[in-house]
Amino acid sequence: MKSLGFVFHSAPHGSSSGREGLDAVLATSAYSEDIKVFFIGDGVFQLLAGQQPEQVLCRDYIATFKMLELYDIEQVYVCRQSLAERGIDPAALLIDTELLSAEALSAQLHQCQRVLSF
């Protein structure tokens, strides 16, 4: 199977794309070991700990990102500039990730043969 990249670029709870993307990543892990997950732009909010989605009547799927490690998905990248632009401390993220500059993140993304965006 070809290397796959999953890009999260939208904030959680405003649409179902984050939850659908996470479901796709976990399902795909059964068929491929070469998966890279990227969080850019507002997508960095997907990993922010301490969210209260029940306040806006949404399902709490954010904690499920902790399952990435259990599914052997180890290549998880976050755009350093996206965090800085939104005033997010990397310590506030729910899971361990690799922080990359926009250029380094782009280089990793270009190594993927297929890219899905959520």
Results as ranks from 00 to 15, higher is better:
F38H: 04
D72R: 10
Q46A: 07
Q55H: 13
G87D: 05
A49W: 14
A63S: 09
G41L: 03
C79V: 05
E54M: 11
A63R: 13
C79F: 04
L47M: 09
Q75E: 14
Q55N: 09
Q75L: 11
S32C: 12
Y71G: 03
L48T: 04
V78I: 04
P53R: 01
G43C: 03
P53E: 03
I62V: 13
L48H: 10
G50W: 05
M67A: 13
E54V: 09
R59E: 12
E69H: 09
P53D: 06
E74H: 15
K36A: 09
Y61V: 09
R59N: 13
D42Y: 08
Y31W: 13
K66Y: 10
F65N: 01
Q51G: 02
I88H: 00
K36G: 06
C58T: 12
F45L: 01
I40A: 01
A84R: 15
V78Y: 08
C79T: 03
P90E: 00
D42L: 02
V37W: 02
K66H: 12
L57C: 15
G87S: 03
Q81T: 14
Q75Y: 14
P90Y: 03
Q55A: 11
L70C: 12
D72H: 07
L68I: 01
D60M: 09
D42C: 05
A63F: 08
V76P: 11
D60S: 12
I40D: 01
D60G: 03
R59M: 12
L83G: 03
I62E: 01
K66D: 11
V56S: 07
T64R: 10
V56I: 15
G87Q: 06
I73M: 13
L48S: 10
I62F: 03
A84T: 07
V37Q: 07
Y71A: 09
M67K: 14
E54W: 11
Q52T: 14
L68W: 02
V37T: 01
Y71V: 07
P53N: 05
E85H: 14
Y61D: 01
M67G: 08
G41P: 02
P90N: 05
Q81K: 10
L57F: 15
R80N: 14
F39C: 06
V78H: 08
V37G: 04
D34S: 12
L57P: 06
I40M: 13
G50N: 08
M67W: 12
G41F: 00
E69D: 15
F65K: 01
Y31I: 07
Q51C: 06
V56H: 10
